[in-house]
């Protein structure tokens, strides 16, 4: 009885989470102007797949958008992996004065909402002449990384037995060799998690590209979706068709790497 109750609860929760996604797909297949005036999932006129090419055309040069977004996402993933794993390794395994205090400081920055940093960061990048380039979006990941990912790497590196590090040192590795040849290959679960989290966050990011990317040729997919907002109305059907297309890689990545993703969620509760 209790098992059935649990299942019922899970089905109800799953339905609640799936509803917006299902509505998006249904709306994307409605004829123009019909999505908001009808009950959800009511499709009397058949499926309007032509919304998809129309949406793609409205978004502009779709190849360029996909390339920009892919480039940006790949650079951010590499940046996060490099910076956060190095910082996590240093905090976990290297001995230096003020290490723990510095780590606390890094953790404390998690409490700063990104909006607080937006203006000083924008002024900094404007002074460097980097506005309307991808650098303001990539550099923060390479030169700092996300504190949460640093924390994740540190916790994982701490869980690797110290004897492995010492064996590697006796075998001829220095700090970099230990990181590159022992720690990093062993940290594959965290690498996967950080890569997926970063992919989802960067691919879907609207806010930072909106601040820094002005010219049409630098636009990303998420920015291009905004072009469906017209002066007096929103082209809901096309917007939903465009959103479905933009979201598809995220869903694909999530379903393919579901296990890694869930392991990452569990890792974030790892002991230290």
């Amino acid at each position: 009885m209790r098992r059935w109750a649990n299942r019922l609860l899970l089905v109800a929760l799953a339905a609640a989470f799936l509803y917006p996604l299902a509505w998006m797909l249904s709306a994307s297949l409605q004829p123009e102007g019909a999505a908001l005036g009808r009950p959800p999932f009511y499709l009397p006129d058949g499926l309007h797949f032509e919304n998809y090419p129309v949406a793609a055309a409205r978004m502009g040069r779709i190849h360029r958008l996909v390339w920009n977004t892919t480039l940006l996402t790949a650079a951010c993933i590499l940046g996060q992996l490099l910076c956060c794993s190095l910082a996590g390794y240093a905090f976990a395994r290297l001995r230096f004065a003020g290490r723990d205090a510095l780590f606390l400081l890094v953790l404390a920055t998690m409490m700063l909402p990104p909006q607080v940093l937006a203006i000083p960061q924008f002024l900094l990048f404007r002074r460097l002449g980097l506005v309307d380039t991808f650098w303001p979006l990539i550099l923060p990941t390479v030169l700092g990384g996300a504190p949460f990912f640093i924390f994740l790497f540190r916790q994982y590196f701490l869980s690797i037995p110290q004897e492995l590090v010492e064996a590697a040192r006796v075998d001829g590795c220095r700090a970099w060799g230990v990181y590159w040849r022992i720690m990093l290959p062993l940290a594959r679960p965290v690498i996967g998690t950080v890569a997926i989290f970063t992919f989802l966050a960067t691919w879907n990011d609207f806010w930072a590209p909106l601040i820094y990317l002005n010219s049409e040729e630098n636009q990303t997919l998420a920015l291009a979706l905004a072009s469906f907002n017209q002066s007096y109305r929103v082209a809901v059907e096309w917007l939903m068709a465009g959103t479905s297309m933009v979201l598809a890689p995220c869903l694909l990545v999530y379903f393919l790497f579901q296990k890694v993703f869930l392991r990452g969620v569990r890792l974030s509760g790892a002991k230290g």
Partner: peptide, 12 residues
């Protein structure tokens, strides 16, 4: 060369 109590073989 050192042999450790827990062997310290590289698992990967």
């Amino acid at each position: 060369a050192m042999v450790f109590q827990n062997y310290a073989l590289y698992p990967h």
